[in-house]
């Protein structure tokens, strides 16, 4: 599963690179527009260790941000699952909050919280929590009647049991959404770093852009892709193992 993720990414990345180089040589473009393979390789040798460390920094923020957003989405999803006024209020509030584009909110976050770790974390969590919330609300507000009926009619139903039943019945869906949201958390962190932070791969991309250095950006994309593939692969594996263990 993990290996498949990595080689799938490598195929896509190399195809993209190949496409760029074909365009470069077909149109006789200079290295300034599209860098040549030697320059890309040299840049890779020079910057890969530093970018790898940057991407690890970004990934660690993304992972924590994703974890927070999972907790947040599950909490709101659990509250919002109820067909009560409060449940619907929570859902509407959560949806409205997400309606504001993150690039509009991010500068406010950075001004209020500074350009450090917390701002990056918050933005990462904000970006990936909404799809999670949608899935969790969808899953949690859909009764599994054929299981829940017994507990309801015998008066044994508790909210914890209800959440457990619905989560269990939709475990594959949940793990897929969580694995998918890793991409969003990573993208959110990178956007945050790109806008205002002082660390991480997004910040490095920003500097590479200042320097019009496309090879550095290609190397950055490579490190992002590889690390994200590994992380997603690990999440999928964890999901698979949880599924296997819980479902027997």
């Amino acid at each position: 599963m993990l290996l498949r993720r990595i080689y799938q990414f490598l195929i896509i990345y190399l195809l993209g690179l190949f496409l760029l180089l074909v365009i470069k040589y077909a149109l006789n473009l200079s290295d300034y527009v599209i860098p040549g393979p030697v320059e890309i390789w040299e840049t890779c040798r020079e910057t890969l260790p530093r970018y790898f460390s940057d991407v690890m920094d970004t990934l660690s923020v993304a992972i924590i941000g994703q974890f927070i957003s999972i907790v947040l989405a599950i909490s709101i999803g659990v509250i919002g699952r109820q067909a009560t006024w409060f449940g619907s209020f929570v859902k509407v509030a959560a949806y409205n909050f997400q309606a504001y584009p993150i690039v509009a909110i991010a500068p406010i976050v950075f001004i209020l919280l500074g350009d450090g770790f917390i701002s990056r974390l918050l933005i990462a969590a904000m970006i990936c929590y909404f799809p999670l919330l949608l899935s969790v609300v969808g899953i949690m507000s859909e009764p599994i009647s054929d299981i829940e009926h017994f507990y309801r009619i015998t008066g044994r139903m508790r909210w914890q049991l209800e959440v457990k039943i619905r989560a269990f019945e939709n475990l594959s869906k949940l793990t897929t959404v969580i694995a998918g949201s890793a991409t969003l958390a990573m993208a959110g962190t990178i956007v945050a770093e790109f806008i205002a932070a002082n660390a991480g791969i997004g910040y490095s991309i920003r500097i590479a852009l200042y320097q019009s250095n496309l090879s550095k950006i290609l190397v950055a994309l490579f490190t992002i892709g590889v690390s994200l593939s590994v992380y997603q692969g690990m999440l999928e594996m964890a999901g698979y193992m949880i599924n296997k263990r819980w479902k027997g």
Binding site: D146, I147, H149, F150, I153, T154, R156, K164, I165, F168, W246, K247, G248
Partner: peptide, 23 residues
């Protein structure tokens, strides 16, 4: 008054015995 019907299910996270013991 209780109502049971065909095609009801027990949660899948543990064995039949554990579920029956629990209720």
């Amino acid at each position: 008054f209780l109502y049971s019907y065909n095609l009801e299910r027990l949660p899948g996270w543990s064995s039949v015995r554990r579920h029956i013991d629990k209720i």
